[in-house]
């Protein structure tokens, strides 16, 4: 019997794609997964347009206007939204810039950086505008599940996904919860 596959979308906002790499670490379990889910928009499929999905996985925090757009769209189109990894949960490494004023960050990078020619702060409309601070995703949209880790291990992701897909309550073992 073939059950209809659940539609899953993923994205990486202000993150390093490490959580996606961890997802790929599922290795041969990816075949099992592929029988149960169908990937929609994701860096793994290169589908650009987000369709109506059952599950959205968000990696990374919110650092710019584009992140806000993407996150809002995911929230609107995904029935269940999951924040995955330290950056999505508390801003993580990118949020370390919150220690400084945005002005200082931009000037340090673009005006005072080493080897710059004709230094200027980029202002092309193509480049997403930065928020004053980096925020975790739950400060912008409602999140249904949180999966900590930097990144969460493939085992953790596998346990979580299995529980979620089978409708069980999510319960991770001690070694599966870590913040780094």
């Amino acid at each position: 019997m073939i059950e209809p596959r659940l539609k899953v979308a993923t994205c990486s906002l202000a993150g390093c794609f490490g959580c996606h790499m961890s997802l790929l670490d599922l290795d041969e379990r990816l075949f099992d997964l592929a029988e149960r889910v169908e990937l929609d928009r994701s860096p793994l499929t290169d589908i650009k347009e987000l369709g109506e999905c059952d599950i959205g996985l968000i990696e990374g925090g919110v650092c710019n206007a584009e992140n806000v757009h993407v996150l809002m769209e995911f929230r609107a189109r995904c029935k269940t939204l999951i924040a995955i990894g330290a950056c999505a949960l508390n801003g993580g490494i990118p949020a370390m810039r919150n220690q400084f004023a945005l002005k200082d960050c931009l000037e340090e990078s673009y005006l005072r950086g080493v080897g710059l020619v004709d230094p200027q702060i980029p202002n092309d409309p193509e480049i997403p505008l930065l928020l004053a601070q980096v925020h975790p995703v739950h400060e912008v949209v409602k999140i249904d599940y949180f999966l900590p880790g930097c990144p969460p291990s493939a085992d953790t992701i596998w346990t979580f996904v299995n529980q979620l897909l089978s409708g069980q309550p999510v319960a991770l073992s001690y070694t599966q919860i870590h913040y780094d």
């Binding site: 206007a65 806000v68 757009h69 996150l71 809002m72 769209e73 995911f74 929230r75 609107a76 004023a101 945005l102 002005k103 931009l106 702060i121 980029p122 202002n123 409309p125 997403p128 505008l129 930065l130 928020l131 004053a132 601070q133 912008v140 949209v141």
Partner: peptide, 26 residues
């Protein structure tokens, strides 16, 4: 939260704002 960046870049194009419609989506 985008205002500081707008000032630093001098940008006033539509992409430099998040309007109500954008925000309602999520």
């Amino acid at each position: 939260a985008l205002e500081e960046a707008r000032q630093l870049t001098g940008r006033r194009d539509p992409g430099a704002y998040l309007n109500e419609r954008d925000l309602l989506l999520g």
